[in-house]
Design a protein around this nucleic acid. Structure first.
Lengths: 230, 230
DNA sequence: CGAACGCCTCTACACCGTAGACTCTAGGCG
DNA sequence: CGCCTAGAGTCTACGGTGTAGAGGCGTTCG
């Protein structure tokens, strides 16, 4: 008897646990804090041991993006594809707000790996959204185009919002003012004028509006043009 | 006489030269290759000397993004704002294709710095596009919203395209096939089916189409709704 | 001529990813 | 029971990183 799993931090490791801990580390201390040594320390294990569960630091990063994207639910058989796209957009937005430090990985990792060789979990959303659209009646070609417009817009919005995201509203209105005050009035009149509007960014509304624009634009273009669905 | 500027690589340094060299290094060897030591070597100077022209490695990265964004021309007084937005989009796309290794910086650096404290060169496009829209008759508030939708979409597209971008078309169709072949057919039917379409991505057309969708969507929304211009 | 200043260089420190060899432990099999 | 094997975990070491701090050197000014 007497298993040696003392503090319970000494259980046998597995990839899942390693990645999860890495994610926590990134969430709480930022991407730069994630080193093999720090992670080993967090797991109370020698850093070298981690290479049993991730071939690389790069592989570790890929694993984290996979982990995060797995939190995103998609139901490819929902007949109301527009509503579904809208919901996914909001979910992904919340996901990004929950893991802001991971967002750079989300947008950056795929740039280093050709599509076919990416971690499977990363390709799942693409596949499922294609499924959703095709199920809704789109020709596969059009589905791909819709997907691209949609996902492009979505990632763009998330980057936009996170750029303007500020932690403590009170202190940072000041900071923002201070920052903007630094701008030479001669060269940045509009930005300075818009400071108050910049200060209260409503990401959810903005996203929803954007999606509406996109969907209505898509609808118009597709009904007017060639192949369509629904 | 006989100035000691022997190889001409020994001229007096300045920030511009340092950043330009750093950019070349990143362009040709990737972001990871940019270290103070490597850069010092490229400039034939002690790495420590660089700290006279960039406070930090981070500052160096900011400088590079600034440098690249300065290549983007915007004419805020053009009365045809739609055409102008379209041209800027295509120019930025080409810029991204010319400096693909810098794109991660473009999308990632702003996430680490509150808007007001960013390098001025980085804020110039924002300011000028606001100017363009306001000049065209938009209320400042609306101009900001239009800007966000536009820039969000634009960055999204660039990320999309660069993700699917593949250097050598011949070799990489094979590679793509190989990669996609790896996908379990059961779980990724649509992706596998779309392989040929994925293979010939026409970024320019796709972007133009997207911009059209966006602009028509914007027009519809704004004519139907409240304040508008033009 | 001496002092001051800016550019540059050197050395040093703490950290990083990871290759390779080692130890230890649990389990299977004779 | 005893041995063997395989895998998990560890240790050490190497070449790289950012950058603090002190020193050197040439030019320019008082």
């Amino acid at each position: 008897m007497s298993a040696p799993q003392d503090t319970d931090s000494r259980r046998r490791l597995n990839r899942e646990v390693v990645l999860q801990t890495a994610l926590q580390l990134v969430d709480s201390e930022g991407l730069e804090a994630l080193s093999m040594r720090r992670l080993g320390q967090a797991l109370d294990r020698d850093p070298m041991g981690l290479y049993r569960y991730a071939a690389n630091r790069a592989d570790l990063l890929d694993g984290i993006t996979e982990l995060v994207l797995n939190e995103l639910a998609i139901f490819p058989t929902d007949p109301d594809w527009q509503a579904q796209l809208r919901r996914i957009a909001h979910d992904l937005r919340l996901l990004a707000l929950r893991h802001p430090n991971v967002v750079p990985l989300l947008v950056t990792r795929p740039l280093s790996t050709p599509l076919g060789l990416r971690p499977l979990g990363t390709l799942r959303p693409l596949e499922q959204i294609l499924g959703l659209l095709i199920e809704a009646g789109f020709a596969p070609n059009d589905a791909l185009h819709v997907y691209r417009a949609y996902y492009g817009f979505l990632y763009g919005h998330i980057l936009n919002e996170l750029q303007e995201f500020i932690v403590d509203p009170e202190e940072n209105v000041a900071l923002l003012r201070l920052g903007l005050h630094r701008l030479p009035a001669r060269d940045f009149p509009h930005l300075r004028e818009l400071a108050p509007v910049l200060a209260d960014y409503d990401g959810e509304a903005e996203l929803d509006e954007g999606i509406s624009i996109l969907l209505s634009g898509l609808a118009e273009r597709l009904t007017g043009g060639a192949a369509l669905a629904r």
